[in-house]
Design a protein around this nucleic acid. Structure first.
Lengths: 217, 217
DNA sequence: TAAACAAAAGCGAATGTTCCTTCTTTTTAG
DNA sequence: CTAAAAAGAAGGAACATTCGCTTTTGTTTA
């Protein structure tokens, strides 16, 4: 959790004198982040719906009025946290796509990269919760659809690149394969959220072996 | 939804006269199932926590007293439905394991077998919700761990069988590969819950191609 | 420089609703 | 006629959110 004292961020120079806020934009952003961290910690432990606003408020060490100054509703907090949880995974995959050229190379390191994130255990638990939230929150679903589309498109491009290089068979459906590769990541997140002792390295090696055709020689 | 009239199941012969229930065990089981179907329909649409008991009661066409005769609490209904949603997938995989011998043959038909279940769309939405529920319901987690262990063990056995047949490389970690294969199924369920237009057949073929090493030649 | 001021930030008791569950009464089946 | 089953009104707690008041902060004024 962030430790943001009320006076931690002093005001800079002001441009508008009449209607300026009393604190800087950085202070507001930091406090917002502080509330999100507190909420994430509770949500990861107890779930979105078994955590009351009072729990979040207590965890943040604030008052209801303060929290509701930064977020219009509990749902707004849930959406913000869900997007972050899902987005952090997307960034890891995109990063891996930049670093590795072949599909087996790609999948072998992904699980460890995900578990290497800050607060990875919390993040994965939040992601699993968020998946369910997406099913019934239209706003969240729309925003997540965008991230998902980018991810699938990037994976598909990689498969098609492999095809041009001759590593990937001509007749495979690049789009469907992208879904399968995504599933390998999603399944890992789910299983690891359930069992934090699941080895990311062993899973990564197994995924590489599967993709490398070691199951069908 | 099941349509169980109040008098649909007549009493059979009674053995104990003094303290016998007024209706048969079949009637009780049918009514219990009816309530579960009603709850599942609502839960699939609105989620466990956005569905009130009154919603379930209305959907079942009963009264609070009637529903609470069959279930001690809302949580008990959630657990029953979660176990069924997760269990139905397990049965499909076990069935597929019985029918197909090679790993590629196994994965190609699994997605279509899952979408072929009764009320498949609802079942998958419920499964995704249940995954999140498992994270914070100890009782549910314990019971699901059992199912999961059986499934992983069956998949691992299949991989080891492949190894004896020479299809699978000696050095692969059968246990970790089982997790990856499970992920391919879980990821499909998630993606299909999000997008019911996802083609089970295309996904199955892509999964087969991936497992058959078509991405790394 | 320091006192006063204005506006934002924060507080927290209170509100009104929602919801799960219970309990008494009524109905139904055997 | 008896006992189970169902009904449904009502209890009682939990909860998200609001709103009037207080504190803090940055600026202006004496």
């Amino acid at each position: 959790m962030l430790a943001v004292g009320r006076c931690a961020v002093k005001s800079e120079h002001s441009l508008y004198y009449g209607a300026m806020p009393r604190v800087t934009a950085e202070y507001l952003a930091a406090r917002r982040g502080h509330i999100l961290s507190a909420a994430a910690a509770r949500f990861a432990r107890d779930g979105f719906h078994r955590t009351s606003m009072q729990d979040v408020i207590d965890e943040a060490g604030l008052s209801p009025g303060a929290v509701y100054r930064y977020f219009r509703s509990k749902d707004e907090i849930i959406i913000a946290i869900s997007l972050e949880a899902i987005g952090s995974v997307e960034r890891v995959v995109q990063e891996a796509l930049r670093e590795h050229r072949s599909v087996p190379d790609l999948v072998v390191g992904l699980p460890a990269a995900i578990t290497g994130l800050d607060d990875a255990d919390d993040r994965m638990r939040l992601a699993v919760q968020a998946w369910g939230e997406v099913l019934r929150n239209r706003d969240l679903a729309d925003r997540m659809a965008g991230e998902l589309a980018r991810l699938e498109s990037a994976l598909r491009d990689r498969v098609e690149m492999g095809r041009r290089d001759g590593d990937v068979a001509e007749e495979v459906d690049a789009d469907a394969v992208a879904h399968v590769l995504l599933a390998v990541v999603q399944g890992f997140i789910l299983q690891r959220a359930w069992n934090p002792h699941l080895s990311a390295e062993a899973y990564g090696r197994a995924a590489r072996d599967v993709v490398a055709g070691q199951l069908a020689r």
